[in-house]
Design a protein around this nucleic acid. Structure first.
Lengths: 119, 119
DNA sequence: ATTATTGTATTATTGTGCTAATACAATCGA
DNA sequence: TCGATTGTATTAGCACAATAATACAATAAT
Protein backbone atom coordinates (compact mmCIF):
# COMPACT_ATOMS: atom_id res chain seq x y z
CA UNK A 1 0.00 0.00 0.00
CA UNK A 2 1.35 3.38 -0.98
CA UNK A 3 1.19 6.75 0.69
CA UNK A 4 -0.71 9.23 -1.42
CA UNK A 5 0.18 12.80 -0.56
CA UNK A 6 -0.79 16.01 -2.26
CA UNK A 7 0.28 19.58 -1.60
CA UNK A 8 -3.21 20.80 -0.85
CA UNK A 9 -3.29 20.10 2.85
CA UNK A 10 -0.64 19.77 5.57
CA UNK A 11 1.25 16.53 5.19
CA UNK A 12 0.98 15.53 8.85
CA UNK A 13 -2.77 15.83 8.51
CA UNK A 14 -2.86 13.57 5.48
CA UNK A 15 -0.62 11.06 7.20
CA UNK A 16 -2.93 11.01 10.21
CA UNK A 17 -5.90 10.40 7.96
CA UNK A 18 -4.24 7.55 6.10
CA UNK A 19 -3.05 5.94 9.29
CA UNK A 20 -6.61 6.00 10.56
CA UNK A 21 -7.80 4.49 7.31
CA UNK A 22 -5.29 1.66 7.55
CA UNK A 23 -6.46 0.84 11.02
CA UNK A 24 -10.09 0.93 9.97
CA UNK A 25 -9.41 -1.12 6.86
CA UNK A 26 -7.45 -3.67 8.87
CA UNK A 27 -4.14 -3.09 7.13
CA UNK A 28 -2.88 -2.63 10.65
CA UNK A 29 -4.68 -5.12 12.86
CA UNK A 30 -5.83 -4.48 16.42
CA UNK A 31 -3.01 -5.06 18.90
CA UNK A 32 -0.42 -5.18 16.16
CA UNK A 33 2.87 -3.35 16.43
CA UNK A 34 3.42 -0.47 14.05
CA UNK A 35 6.69 0.05 12.18
CA UNK A 36 8.97 2.56 13.89
CA UNK A 37 8.61 6.28 13.30
CA UNK A 38 11.75 6.27 11.19
CA UNK A 39 10.62 3.32 9.09
CA UNK A 40 7.19 4.79 8.53
CA UNK A 41 8.74 8.13 7.63
CA UNK A 42 11.06 6.54 5.11
CA UNK A 43 8.24 4.46 3.68
CA UNK A 44 6.15 7.58 3.15
CA UNK A 45 9.17 9.56 1.90
CA UNK A 46 8.58 12.08 4.63
CA UNK A 47 10.62 13.62 7.39
CA UNK A 48 10.63 11.67 10.66
CA UNK A 49 9.36 14.66 12.60
CA UNK A 50 6.36 15.02 10.33
CA UNK A 51 5.45 11.36 10.79
CA UNK A 52 6.03 11.76 14.50
CA UNK A 53 3.50 14.55 14.61
CA UNK A 54 0.92 12.44 12.80
CA UNK A 55 1.48 9.55 15.20
CA UNK A 56 1.17 11.82 18.22
CA UNK A 57 -2.22 13.00 17.01
CA UNK A 58 -3.20 9.44 16.24
CA UNK A 59 -2.40 8.65 19.84
CA UNK A 60 -4.59 11.51 21.03
CA UNK A 61 -7.38 9.93 19.03
CA UNK A 62 -6.82 6.82 21.15
CA UNK A 63 -6.17 4.49 18.25
CA UNK A 64 -2.57 3.68 19.17
CA UNK A 65 -0.46 3.77 22.29
CA UNK A 66 3.31 4.14 22.51
CA UNK A 67 5.46 1.94 24.71
CA UNK A 68 8.57 3.90 25.38
CA UNK A 69 11.18 1.82 23.62
CA UNK A 70 9.25 -1.17 22.39
CA UNK A 71 7.35 0.70 19.69
CA UNK A 72 3.79 1.71 19.00
CA UNK A 73 0.81 -0.59 19.07
CA UNK A 74 -2.66 -0.42 17.63
CA UNK A 75 -5.41 -0.34 20.22
CA UNK A 76 -7.00 -3.70 21.00
CA UNK A 77 -10.36 -2.06 21.48
CA UNK A 78 -12.23 -3.33 18.43
CA UNK A 79 -15.22 -1.23 19.41
CA UNK A 80 -13.21 1.95 19.23
CA UNK A 81 -12.06 1.07 15.74
CA UNK A 82 -15.59 0.28 14.61
CA UNK A 83 -16.84 3.52 16.18
CA UNK A 84 -14.20 5.47 14.31
CA UNK A 85 -15.27 3.85 11.08
CA UNK A 86 -18.88 4.83 11.68
CA UNK A 87 -17.88 8.36 12.61
CA UNK A 88 -15.94 8.70 9.38
CA UNK A 89 -18.81 7.36 7.34
CA UNK A 90 -21.35 9.72 8.88
CA UNK A 91 -19.02 12.62 8.37
CA UNK A 92 -18.72 11.73 4.70
CA UNK A 93 -22.48 11.51 4.38
CA UNK A 94 -23.08 14.87 6.02
CA UNK A 95 -20.33 16.47 3.99
CA UNK A 96 -21.92 15.22 0.81
CA UNK A 97 -25.43 16.30 1.69
CA UNK A 98 -24.47 19.75 2.94
CA UNK A 99 -22.20 20.26 -0.05
CA UNK A 100 -24.99 19.42 -2.43
CA UNK A 101 -27.39 21.61 -0.51
CA UNK A 102 -25.09 24.58 -1.02
CA UNK A 103 -25.32 23.88 -4.75
CA UNK A 104 -29.08 24.06 -4.53
CA UNK A 105 -29.77 20.35 -4.82
CA UNK A 106 -32.63 18.85 -2.87
CA UNK A 107 -32.11 15.79 -0.75
CA UNK A 108 -33.82 13.63 -3.35
CA UNK A 109 -31.78 15.03 -6.19
CA UNK A 110 -28.64 14.32 -4.20
CA UNK A 111 -29.69 10.69 -3.78
CA UNK A 112 -30.61 10.09 -7.39
CA UNK A 113 -27.41 11.71 -8.63
CA UNK A 114 -25.45 9.31 -6.51
CA UNK A 115 -27.18 6.31 -7.99
CA UNK A 116 -26.15 7.37 -11.46
CA UNK A 117 -22.64 8.53 -10.62
CA UNK A 118 -19.82 6.30 -11.80
CA UNK A 119 -16.12 6.58 -11.31
CA UNK B 1 -24.58 36.02 3.58
CA UNK B 2 -21.42 35.59 5.61
CA UNK B 3 -17.94 34.40 4.71
CA UNK B 4 -17.07 31.23 6.55
CA UNK B 5 -13.33 30.72 6.80
CA UNK B 6 -11.35 28.16 8.71
CA UNK B 7 -7.63 27.75 9.18
CA UNK B 8 -7.49 24.32 7.59
CA UNK B 9 -6.92 25.38 4.01
CA UNK B 10 -5.45 28.48 2.33
CA UNK B 11 -7.83 31.41 2.64
CA UNK B 12 -7.63 32.42 -1.00
CA UNK B 13 -8.72 28.89 -1.89
CA UNK B 14 -11.73 29.08 0.39
CA UNK B 15 -12.64 32.47 -0.97
CA UNK B 16 -12.50 31.13 -4.51
CA UNK B 17 -14.76 28.27 -3.56
CA UNK B 18 -17.33 30.50 -1.90
CA UNK B 19 -17.33 32.93 -4.78
CA UNK B 20 -18.06 30.04 -7.12
CA UNK B 21 -20.83 28.90 -4.82
CA UNK B 22 -22.42 32.35 -4.81
CA UNK B 23 -22.42 32.44 -8.57
CA UNK B 24 -23.90 28.97 -8.79
CA UNK B 25 -26.50 29.71 -6.15
CA UNK B 26 -27.43 32.95 -7.88
CA UNK B 27 -26.39 35.25 -5.06
CA UNK B 28 -24.42 36.94 -7.77
CA UNK B 29 -26.50 36.88 -10.95
CA UNK B 30 -25.15 36.40 -14.45
CA UNK B 31 -23.93 39.67 -15.91
CA UNK B 32 -24.06 41.41 -12.57
CA UNK B 33 -21.26 43.61 -11.34
CA UNK B 34 -19.27 42.38 -8.37
CA UNK B 35 -18.33 44.64 -5.47
CA UNK B 36 -14.79 45.98 -5.76
CA UNK B 37 -11.82 43.97 -4.54
CA UNK B 38 -11.45 46.26 -1.57
CA UNK B 39 -15.11 46.05 -0.61
CA UNK B 40 -15.16 42.28 -0.94
CA UNK B 41 -11.99 42.06 1.13
CA UNK B 42 -13.43 44.19 3.87
CA UNK B 43 -16.67 42.26 3.82
CA UNK B 44 -14.77 39.00 4.28
CA UNK B 45 -12.42 40.55 6.84
CA UNK B 46 -9.50 39.58 4.67
CA UNK B 47 -6.56 41.38 3.13
CA UNK B 48 -7.25 42.92 -0.26
CA UNK B 49 -4.35 41.01 -1.85
CA UNK B 50 -5.79 37.71 -0.69
CA UNK B 51 -9.19 38.53 -2.18
CA UNK B 52 -7.45 39.71 -5.33
CA UNK B 53 -5.80 36.33 -5.69
CA UNK B 54 -9.10 34.52 -5.32
CA UNK B 55 -10.68 36.75 -7.95
CA UNK B 56 -7.80 36.21 -10.34
CA UNK B 57 -8.29 32.47 -10.10
CA UNK B 58 -12.02 32.90 -10.48
CA UNK B 59 -11.29 34.75 -13.68
CA UNK B 60 -9.10 31.89 -14.91
CA UNK B 61 -12.09 29.64 -14.35
CA UNK B 62 -13.97 31.90 -16.75
CA UNK B 63 -16.75 32.80 -14.36
CA UNK B 64 -15.95 36.50 -14.19
CA UNK B 65 -14.16 39.03 -16.33
CA UNK B 66 -12.49 42.26 -15.24
CA UNK B 67 -13.01 45.57 -16.99
CA UNK B 68 -10.00 47.63 -16.15
CA UNK B 69 -11.56 50.41 -14.12
CA UNK B 70 -15.25 49.67 -14.25
CA UNK B 71 -15.11 46.63 -12.02
CA UNK B 72 -15.62 42.89 -12.36
CA UNK B 73 -18.63 41.26 -13.89
CA UNK B 74 -20.12 37.80 -13.66
CA UNK B 75 -20.14 35.92 -16.94
CA UNK B 76 -23.37 36.07 -18.90
CA UNK B 77 -22.89 32.52 -20.08
CA UNK B 78 -25.62 30.72 -18.16
CA UNK B 79 -24.46 27.44 -19.64
CA UNK B 80 -21.02 27.84 -18.11
CA UNK B 81 -22.55 28.46 -14.72
CA UNK B 82 -24.80 25.43 -15.03
CA UNK B 83 -21.85 23.32 -16.18
CA UNK B 84 -19.85 24.43 -13.17
CA UNK B 85 -22.71 23.43 -10.92
CA UNK B 86 -22.84 19.97 -12.46
CA UNK B 87 -19.09 19.57 -12.20
CA UNK B 88 -19.20 20.43 -8.52
CA UNK B 89 -22.05 18.02 -7.90
CA UNK B 90 -20.29 15.13 -9.63
CA UNK B 91 -17.12 15.84 -7.74
CA UNK B 92 -19.03 15.66 -4.48
CA UNK B 93 -20.60 12.38 -5.50
CA UNK B 94 -17.30 10.80 -6.45
CA UNK B 95 -15.63 12.11 -3.31
CA UNK B 96 -18.34 10.54 -1.20
CA UNK B 97 -18.29 7.18 -2.95
CA UNK B 98 -14.51 6.85 -3.01
CA UNK B 99 -14.28 7.96 0.58
CA UNK B 100 -16.75 5.35 1.67
CA UNK B 101 -15.00 2.74 -0.42
CA UNK B 102 -11.78 3.40 1.45
CA UNK B 103 -13.70 2.69 4.65
CA UNK B 104 -14.75 -0.66 3.24
CA UNK B 105 -18.34 0.24 2.48
CA UNK B 106 -19.97 -1.23 -0.60
CA UNK B 107 -21.79 0.98 -3.03
CA UNK B 108 -25.13 -0.17 -1.70
CA UNK B 109 -24.16 0.39 1.89
CA UNK B 110 -23.08 3.89 0.96
CA UNK B 111 -26.47 4.58 -0.59
CA UNK B 112 -28.53 3.25 2.29
CA UNK B 113 -26.44 5.10 4.84
CA UNK B 114 -27.16 8.31 3.01
CA UNK B 115 -30.91 7.72 3.12
CA UNK B 116 -30.77 7.44 6.90
CA UNK B 117 -28.30 10.21 7.53
CA UNK B 118 -29.69 13.35 9.11
CA UNK B 119 -28.03 16.60 9.97
C1' DA C 1 -10.64 69.12 -16.33
C1' DT C 2 -10.51 67.11 -12.05
C1' DT C 3 -11.51 63.73 -8.64
C1' DA C 4 -12.50 59.32 -7.07
C1' DT C 5 -12.63 54.53 -7.91
C1' DT C 6 -11.18 50.63 -10.42
C1' DG C 7 -7.88 46.59 -11.19
C1' DT C 8 -3.17 45.58 -10.68
C1' DA C 9 1.71 45.42 -9.08
C1' DT C 10 5.45 45.76 -5.67
C1' DT C 11 7.96 45.31 -1.42
C1' DA C 12 8.45 44.01 3.32
C1' DT C 13 7.10 41.37 7.37
C1' DT C 14 5.01 37.61 10.01
C1' DG C 15 3.52 32.95 11.04
C1' DT C 16 3.86 28.15 10.24
C1' DG C 17 4.35 23.70 7.94
C1' DC C 18 8.12 21.03 6.68
C1' DT C 19 12.77 19.49 6.40
C1' DA C 20 17.17 18.53 8.43
C1' DA C 21 20.39 17.14 11.76
C1' DT C 22 21.11 15.79 16.05
C1' DA C 23 20.71 14.47 20.92
C1' DC C 24 18.98 11.81 24.84
C1' DA C 25 16.83 8.44 27.90
C1' DA C 26 14.88 3.91 28.07
C1' DT C 27 15.00 -0.93 27.12
C1' DC C 28 15.17 -4.91 24.28
C1' DG C 29 18.25 -8.39 22.42
C1' DA C 30 22.47 -10.71 21.67
C1' DT D 1 27.02 -6.07 29.95
C1' DC D 2 26.65 -3.45 25.90
C1' DG D 3 25.19 -2.03 21.58
C1' DA D 4 21.22 -1.21 18.74
C1' DT D 5 16.61 0.47 18.43
C1' DT D 6 12.78 2.82 20.35
C1' DG D 7 10.03 7.21 21.20
C1' DT D 8 10.86 11.92 22.09
C1' DA D 9 12.84 16.65 22.14
C1' DT D 10 15.48 20.56 20.33
C1' DT D 11 17.39 23.83 17.18
C1' DA D 12 17.98 25.85 12.74
C1' DG D 13 16.65 26.97 8.09
C1' DC D 14 13.56 27.17 3.98
C1' DA D 15 9.14 27.87 1.50
C1' DC D 16 4.98 29.98 1.20
C1' DA D 17 0.43 31.79 2.62
C1' DA D 18 -1.16 35.91 4.46
C1' DT D 19 -0.94 40.61 6.01
C1' DA D 20 0.30 45.35 5.44
C1' DA D 21 1.23 49.51 3.11
C1' DT D 22 1.66 51.68 -0.89
C1' DA D 23 1.93 52.95 -5.77
C1' DC D 24 0.34 53.40 -10.55
C1' DA D 25 -2.42 53.58 -14.82
C1' DA D 26 -6.99 53.75 -16.64
C1' DT D 27 -11.52 55.56 -16.69
C1' DA D 28 -16.08 56.61 -14.93
C1' DA D 29 -18.36 60.34 -12.68
C1' DT D 30 -18.91 64.96 -11.41
Amino acid sequence: MSWELDGERPIYSQLLEQLQLRIIAGTYQAGQRLPSVRDLAQEAAVNANTMQRALTELEHAGLVHAQRTAGRFITEDQGKIAATRTTFALRHANTYLSGMQKLGYTREESLTLLQEADK
